[in-house]
Amino acid sequence: MKIIAVIPARYEASRFPGKLMQMLGDKTVITTTYQNVVETHLFDEVFVATDSEIIFNEIAENGGKAVMTGQHETGSDRIAEAVKNIACDIVINVQGDEPFLKLEPLQQLILAFKEDSKKEISLASLKIKLNEKEEIKNPNNVKVITDNQDFALYFSRSVIPYHRENSANIDYYKHIGVYAFRKDALLKFSQLEMKPLEISEKIECIRYLEYGMKIKMIETYFVGVGIDTPEDLDKARQLIGE
């Protein structure tokens, strides 16, 4: 089983343009992410997939592997173009703005496929428990609900489930945007038309659910810093003692 990691990276992020080229210590955010993924030694190859010559050159100049793509609405669509002609079985999508992703969650994702002898899983992803009301209500935190086998039922920026019955003991989970795909499922995904639920929520993995594909959700306890705003970048710099 050949397992690769692909980091989708676009320069013009809507909330923080150019964030991947911001400095984090003595390296850019995207180079930090790339090198941290390589150093896990979990993958046969690691690539950055980008439509930006600036990011492409940044990775190449630092000895990494980058693939130029066209423009895409979602990271999964970008990765599908990047891996079309790369021989592999499993593709792990690591977000370029998550420079501190740890080894254990990636190992958990890979293990899910190695144990999936019936090949029921098209896609696996991560979730983490939310405890603060503000975090649960925050629409920037995508929430996920699952069935008894931890397959996703739905994702939303709204609060799900709605806590109508106060006596019910409900846990809330945030979806962490690290995906592991079977290559054939990823290529199929990229050919599927966006439906209204995905368009409304702007959550790409809803497309899988709308077309009947199974998403295995794996709980993790890792809390990192996703860099979506300048304030997040400040937090990341504090983590490395800058």
Rank of each mutant, 00 (worst) to 15 (best):
Gln149Arg: 09
Ile79Glu: 02
Lys102Tyr: 11
Val159Arg: 02
Leu101Cys: 13
Asn141Gly: 01
Leu123Gly: 11
Ala152Trp: 00
Gln95Lys: 14
Ser76Ala: 13
Asp147Tyr: 00
Ile128Glu: 15
Phe151Ala: 02
Pro105Phe: 03
Lys127Glu: 14
Ser158Leu: 13
Glu81Asn: 04
Asp116Ser: 02
Leu126Val: 03
Gly64Cys: 01
Gly64Glu: 00
Ala152Leu: 05
Glu120Ala: 09
Gly63Asn: 07
Leu126Trp: 09
Arg164Ile: 15
Gly64Asp: 00
Ile90Gly: 02
Asn166His: 14
Asn140Trp: 14
Glu81Trp: 04
Asn131His: 14
Arg164Ala: 15
Asp171Met: 08
Asn141Gln: 06
Thr146Asn: 06
Ala112Gln: 05
Glu165Val: 07
Glu120Ser: 10
Gln71Trp: 07
Ile136Asn: 03
His72Gln: 02
Ile160Pro: 08
Asn85Lys: 09
Asn85Arg: 05
Lys137Asp: 15
Val142Ser: 06
Ile170Thr: 06
Ala82Gln: 00
Glu81Leu: 09
Arg182Val: 00
Asn85Val: 09
Tyr172Leu: 05
Ile92Ser: 03
Asp116Gly: 00
Asn62Gln: 07
Pro161Ser: 01
Glu132Cys: 08
Gly177Trp: 09
Thr146Ala: 11
Arg164Trp: 11
Lys114Arg: 12
Pro161Cys: 04
Glu120Met: 06
Ala66Tyr: 03
Leu109Pro: 05
Tyr162Asp: 14
Asn148Ile: 12
Ala80Asn: 02
Gln95Gly: 14
Val159His: 08
Ala112Asp: 05
Lys129His: 10
Thr74Leu: 12
Gly63Ala: 04
Gly75Ile: 01
Gly177His: 09
Leu186Trp: 01
Glu134Asn: 11
Val159Ile: 15
Leu126Glu: 02
Ile79Gln: 00
Ala180Met: 03
Asp89Pro: 07
Gly64Phe: 00
Ile176Trp: 10
Ile145Pro: 04
Ala112Lys: 06
Ala82Asn: 00
Asp150Thr: 07
Ser76Asp: 10
Ala180Phe: 02
Val94Tyr: 05
Val144Gln: 02
Asn166Gln: 13
Asn93Gly: 13
Gln95Ser: 15
Ile136Gln: 09
Lys143Phe: 06
Glu135Gln: 12
